[in-house]
Every structure is written in C-alpha cells, then in structure tokens.
Amino acid sequence: MISKNLTAASTKAIILGILKQGNSYGYLIIKKIKKMSGGKMEYSDGMLYPVLHRLEKDGLIQSNWTMSEDTRPRKYYEITEAGKQALLEEKEQWLQVNTVLEKLWNLKPDTNY
C-alpha cells in the first residue's frame, strides 16, 4: 500500500497525466487512478475534488458542465496549455527523484567503511 503522503504528493501529476489523455470527470478520474495503481493507492474519493478545484483555479485545467439527455450531467475537466507545461515540469521532477533513488539502490556497500 502506498503511503498517504506520497499519494497526496503525486496527485497533481497523476490528475494532469490522466487529463492529458482526454477530458474526464471526477468519478472517472478516481476510477482510473485506482485501476492503474491496482488498488495500491489509497484515496478517500472526496479529497480529489479540492485538488481538482485548486488546479482549475491555478489555470492548469478548466471545467465545463455537460448536459445530455441520457446520462447525468457531468462536470468535465480539460487540461490547459499551462497545465501541459506543469505536467512536463512534474514529470521532470519525478524522474529526478526516480534517478536519485535508482542510483541509491544500485550502489554497492562502501568497502572502505
């Protein structure tokens, strides 16, 4: 199980990543995250919404209510250009963390020690 803090820290990147693949709404986003993490990321569903709202406020995503005859109304989120940029930065940062960790794991024990 992935810790709460780590989950929280990665939410932004994950949401942006999902939206990059196409517009989506809250419930669907959560469903995708759960599916992709194989249930390893523990979420309380509700916490997703403040994050979405914050991203919208920061101009990284934008929303649109879609009404249709046959389904419920949905508030669809869409990634903006600024959002795509932010996603690139996030990716960069996560990769850097990853690189550091990988180097560490591959390090042989120091013989002089």
Partner: peptide
C-alpha cells in the same frame, strides 16, 4: 465510506477559496 470524511475536504477546499483573491487567480478564472 470510500468518499471519506467531509471536514478535511472542507479544510482543503477552504484553503482554495482563501487564495481566491490573488490577482493572478482572478485573471485565470473566467
């Protein structure tokens, strides 16, 4: 149950609102 507790959500959301008054966020909104 899966949706979770409401009060931490409210705290999060409230911190969003508080930051509402920055000029850049004003411009970014519609």
């Amino acid at each position: 149950a899966e949706f979770g507790e409401i009060s931490p959500m409210a705290d999060e959301e409230f911190s969003n609102i508080k930051s509402k008054t920055t000029i850049s966020s004003l411009i970014h909104t519609a």
